[in-house]
Structure formats: structure tokens, C-alpha cells
């Protein structure tokens, strides 16, 4: 799972800073991850049931709910990455 990233995350590693875990080849905070899943799963299913029994609207509403959850999570949680811009050597 951890291919191609060695060296990049090793910078400035101190004990108290090292709090993120790797899921699906990128870093996440456990709390943020569970909240994101909770938010998106709920918004998706709420979307679906808002349009219950009116085919094919439920799927469309469900997908919109999923997208909404994605946007909310993106606003609420910060990516666990620091961007460094280097000049060309």
C-alpha cells in the first residue's frame, strides 16, 4: 500500500506531530474520516428518501446528496498535506 511515497513524509517527523494514519494511499485523521463517512452516508440516504417512489428521481437525489456530503466534508476538513513550492534546480 505504501509505494512511491517514501521520503516525502519523513520530513520533520517528531512524535507529537505524527498523528495521521494511511488509508488508501493517503493520510487521514481518524476523527475526520469517521465524521466524513457519517456526513456523506447520511446526506446520500436522506437525498434518496426525499424522492422515494418517484423513479428515477431517488437515484439522482441520492447522488446529489453524496456530492453535497463531499462538498461539506471538503469545507470542514483540511487535507493532511503541506505544499512546498521548489524552484527549478
Amino acid at each position: 500500500m505504501e509505494k512511491g511515497v517514501s521520503g516525502l513524509e519523513k520530513h520533520n517527523q517528531t512524535e507529537d506531530q505524527a498523528k495521521f494514519i494511511e488509508v488508501w494511499e493517503d493520510l487521514v485523521s481518524i476523527k475526520d474520516l469517521f465524521l466524513s463517512i457519517l456526513i456523506t452516508a447520511s446526506s446520500t440516504m436522506i437525498g434518496y428518501f426525499l424522492a422515494h417512489d418517484q423513479e428515477p428521481l431517488p437515484l439522482f437525489f441520492g447522488l446529489t446528496g453524496a456530492l453535497l456530503g463531499f462538498v461539506i466534508s471538503s469545507v470542514l476538513f483540511k487535507p493532511k498535506r503541506t505544499i512546498n513550492i521548489e524552484d527549478e534546480v
Binding site: 517527523q13 506531530q17 498523528k19 495521521f20 494514519i21 493517503d26 498535506r81 503541506t82 512546498n84 521548489e86
Partner: peptide, 9 residues
């Protein structure tokens, strides 16, 4: 556990 990943561009 890892600290913030530093990505150099």
C-alpha cells in the same frame, strides 16, 4: 502514524 505529508512541487 505520520505527520502532515510534505509534498514538494
Amino acid at each position: 502514524r505520520f505527520p502532515q505529508r510534505i509534498i514538494s512541487l
